[in-house]
Design a protein around this nucleic acid. Structure first.
Length: 130
DNA sequence: CTGATGACGGTGC
DNA sequence: GGCACCGCCATCA
């Protein structure tokens, strides 16, 4: 191949690895992924996902923004494919087109799966509804 | 190296 | 709940 393969940077590879840990039927916010990966902001997560190649095994549809909404893409609107794929996993959208993060997003405990040693949750545990 | 960009988040109103 | 601003930071031209 004469063309150089768009090999993901180490950071992006790490992000993909974390995203793959999200169970089917659940979601995570860009911020959560960033916290789990560490040393990167939410934007890097979005950038990494935007660079995914079609047919990748990364469940990119499970990443939504902090508002529980599907982020708009450069093209303009939100990805309809993302919504379809999430609904196929059982994720329910509200009438306003939003996902109840309290119900579907990863809990603090679940975020530890990525890296138990990391203390991205430096704060005290509050009483999470649900 | 410098500047622009982007699938974002927190805060304030 | 919604909107405007600013901050963040790896990537890319």
């Amino acid at each position: 191949m004469t063309v150089d393969s768009p090999e993901p940077t180490p950071l992006h590879a790490r992000i993909y690895e974390v995203v793959r840990m999200i169970p089917e039927g659940r979601v995570a916010t860009y911020g959560q992924i960033a916290a789990m990966v560490g040393r990167c902001g939410p934007r890097q997560v979005g950038t990494a996902l935007s660079r995914l190649r079609k047919g990748s095994d990364v469940p990119w549809q499970r990443i939504v923004n902090a508002a529980g909404r599907i982020s708009d893409r450069k093209d303009g609107g939100p990805s309809s494919e993302q919504r379809t794929r999430l609904q196929a996993e059982g994720v329910v959208f509200t009438k306003a087109g939003r996902i109840d993060l309290k119900q579907y997003a990863l809990s603090r405990e679940e975020m530890l799966w990525a890296d138990p040693s990391s203390r991205f949750l430096g704060d005290e545990l509050d009483d999470e509804e649900h």
